[in-house]
Design a binder for these strands. Structure first.
Lengths: 229, 229
DNA sequence: CTGACAATTATGCAAGCGTATAATTAACCT
DNA sequence: AGGTTAATTATACGCTTGCATAATTGTCAG
């Protein structure tokens, strides 16, 4: 009896690593770290389980790579949102905040990933470094946007650095908190309510009427809303 | 050879359940859900592993009980802080916020618990219910404190309910976000910096100078600071 | 003081885990 | 074409997990 061995095709190292990483993230997002077993990852990526150890020295190595890829992608997405809104400072800031508080950023699966990796972030130094860098990059991005705002009171000049730091910490925290609440209670808020609360509250913290500069959420092209009634 | 069987003493159901729950929380806090195995829990509680199944129908049952106990305790602690500060509304609100953003609330182990249970919160309906109730209770508590504030502009009357809801959501999110940042980056902030940022920012959102009513952090009695120099 | 019963321990089991290793296959070079 | 090599699969091993069950011990009523 010819043992029916699985057919396969050679693929570049990069594509295999990517598909394994993507499969890992998918599993962690859906069922937590416990469900991302070597066998499950291999099955989802459509390969045999041995291949994982051919591209990663251990499962922990794959986990670290997956977390790093996730964080890199999230940072890139944030920057991409900013590049698409080249306008006055208030509009940029409002768009950045609102973008972080609407779909697809606000998503139960995204929070599953966040929480799922948090445990290992605390114990693994490499993952901890990735986490800190990502957080600080987001905060410094926000800080840049805040610093670009016209000073409220006339002729006051730039905001003091220490003050700026505190404002950036507060605004980052507000976005994080609203993001978490939106992810954890998907049905707990009206459509776009979180984005509006976020923009309004950060406006209050910074002393600007940001809500006036807020743009409407972009409708997803996959969702066929009647354009011409 | 007399098999040296372990000595033990009968203890009431409540005490055994409590010690098993406490052991579970301890392990989850330190090493994540993966390290809270039946054997590890039993070892930490000083019993044999079989006893777990005598008091809980399954390990999931114990996990649920542990999460419920944790959330109940956190809620009770919040209320206790409030009972200890019977003063004017601004002071109460400032104390409540600051209390959530200082030790022992801000603690890496606490965040480990939070993140560790989050995965199961998403999938297990019972745990999800506990989570939602706890969150909404905290928010409504904050809402009550906000509503008690004297209205800023003279003779405006009470804040509109819809407005109040938005304010409470924002303030809860701000506290949550700062709490997370403080837990995740223990060395990233100056002493009491987060509490001050939190009180100041929430003051800005609500239109009150809360920072003026902020009280100093209480020093821990276990930390022997020289009382009489 | 002595059963009787509940509380607790000890032991075993099947399943799943990450990892190691050898066999096999597809792609590439000449 | 054919041989070489890297990519991939298959299989097995040792360990840990949650759970079941039987043996044992402490406690307490009469």
């Amino acid at each position: 009896m010819t043992g029916e061995r699985r057919k396969f095709r050679h693929q570049g190292e990069e594509r295999r690593r990517d598909s394994l990483i993507w499969a890992t993230l998918d599993l962690v997002a859906d069922g937590g770290p416990g469900s991302a077993t070597v066998r499950a990852i291999a099955a989802k990526a459509g390969v045999s389980q041995g291949l994982i150890r051919h591209y990663f020295v251990s499962k922990d190595d794959l986990t670290r790579a997956a977390y790093h890829a996730l964080m890199t992608k999230m940072t890139d997405d944030n920057l991409a949102v900013l590049e698409a809104t080249p306008a006055q400072p208030e509009v940029r800031l409002a768009a950045f905040i609102a973008g972080s508080l609407r779909a697809p950023s606000v998503d139960a699966r995204a929070m599953g990933l966040w929480a799922g990796f948090m445990t290992e972030v605390r114990s693994d130094p490499a993952m901890r470094t990735v986490h800190e860098e990502t957080y600080l990059r987001y905060r410094s991005l926000l800080e840049t946007l805040i610093a670009a705002l016209p000073t409220a009171k006339p002729a006051v000049g730039a905001i003091a650095p220490a003050m700026l730091r505190g404002l950036a910490i507060a605004c980052t925290a507000l976005v994080d908190g609203l993001w978490l609440e939106g992810c954890a209670l998907p049905n707990g808020f009206a459509p776009d309510e979180l984005a509006r609360i976020g923009v309004r509250s950060i406006g209050a913290i910074l002393g600007h009427d940001l809500e006036r500069h807020m743009t409407a959420p972009v409708s997803l092209p996959s969702e066929p809303e009647k354009i011409s009634a």
